[in-house]
């Protein structure tokens, strides 16, 4: 599915609006006051050897005059434990639950930015306050259609803000399992890759369309081979194609069924401005709209967890 039903979008947007208006909700204070044992474990785990965090004498002589906690630990103090009771409700909960319900079950963190106002000292007990700052979408992303949800947590000691964190996630609808990507089954139409062709498939994995170039005479050649037929050089190099091309010929495959591909599908011979031709599928275009001379642009499609294939989409001329 590539769009959100208008009613669903309206409900989500209204809910987010109300939660933003709610402003900040205070959570429970840190379960334990800022303490040396937790600082020591964290610093060791992180490889942070700054004695200002763990050496009483050193700290006493330093600018703070006492031990302080590493600022990046701020989330640690108030993070709910795995076995603990229910965390305090925040304005984010309802919004994330509503997105789950609407099918946006995928989640990936996209941004996290922390700001520190001052160091925490031993014995202090920070209290988090959480507010929803925004929800944007629906957006089409590589992962699927989704909404970006952003919130801000401010940590207070008494009523003094000591640190802030902006956190953003993408909640997305995992793409429906198409025939080409069913449960990431291995794509059955694998090329045989050998010494003479590995450079091409390595390039594809890196998002490059590589054309073999003779290091001897500079001739470009596709499909590639081990020897330059022009100058007999076996020194093989490559250039990266611009990614532009033009449909030189094409077919629409209807029958028989081809494993790994849903019919009908389009295969084209694409003429590259670099002077060589290459075969590939034309995607994101109705088969009936494909025509000879149509400008296309290469993109790279993951066919399974390992195999990437260059495919061609319509481009502006």
């Amino acid at each position: 599915m590539t769009t959100v039903e208008p009613a669903v979008h309206r409900r989500l947007a209204e809910l987010a609006e109300r939660r933003i208006e709610l402003g900040e909700t205070r959570g429970l204070p840190a379960a334990d006051p800022v303490n040396l044992p937790m600082i020591r474990h964290w610093a060791e785990a992180m490889g942070d050897t700054n004695p200002a965090y763990t050496d009483e004498e050193f700290a006493a002589a330093g600018p703070h005059g006492e031990i302080v906690a590493p600022p990046a630990m701020i989330q640690v103090w108030t993070m709910p434990g795995r076995g603990g009771g229910r965390p305090a409700p925040t304005p984010i909960d309802d919004v994330l639950a509503a997105l789950d319900e609407a099918g946006f079950t995928g989640v990936v963190a996209t941004d996290c930015r922390q700001t520190y106002h001052r160091y925490l000292r031993l014995g202090e007990r920070p209290v988090p306050g959480t507010r929803l700052s925004g929800m944007t979408g629906p957006k089409t992303t590589a992962l699927g259609l989704g909404y970006f949800v952003t919130w801000v947590i401010t940590w207070y000691v008494a009523d003094e803000p000591v640190a802030e964190m902006m956190f953003r996630v993408l909640k997305f609808r995992p793409p429906e399992r198409g025939p080409a990507a069913a449960a990431r089954d291995p794509y059955p139409l694998r090329p045989a890759v050998g010494r003479d062709t590995a450079f091409f498939w390595e390039g594809v994995r890196q998002g490059e369309l590589r054309i073999q170039k003779c290091a001897g005479c500079g001739t470009l050649r596709h499909p590639p081979g081990p020897v330059c037929p022009s100058c007999r050089s076996t020194e093989r190099a490559h250039v990266v194609a611009s990614g532009r091309g033009e449909v030189f010929s094409y077919v629409v495959h209807h029958a028989p069924p081809v494993p790994g591909l849903a019919t009908p599908f389009v295969v084209a011979v694409v003429q590259l401005p670099e002077g060589v031709r290459i075969v590939g599928n034309v995607v994101e275009c109705e088969p009936a709209k494909v025509e000879i001379g149509m400008p296309v642009r290469v993109t790279f499609r993951e066919m399974d967890d390992e195999f990437v294939l260059p495919v061609w989409s319509p481009a502006e001329s």
Binding site: L189, R190, A192, P223, H253, V258, V267, V279, G280, N281
Partner: peptide, 11 residues
């Protein structure tokens, strides 16, 4: 090797 320029695209 020749077929490998066509088979992956369903040709």
């Amino acid at each position: 090797a020749e077929m490998s320029w066509h088979v992956p695209h369903g040709l």
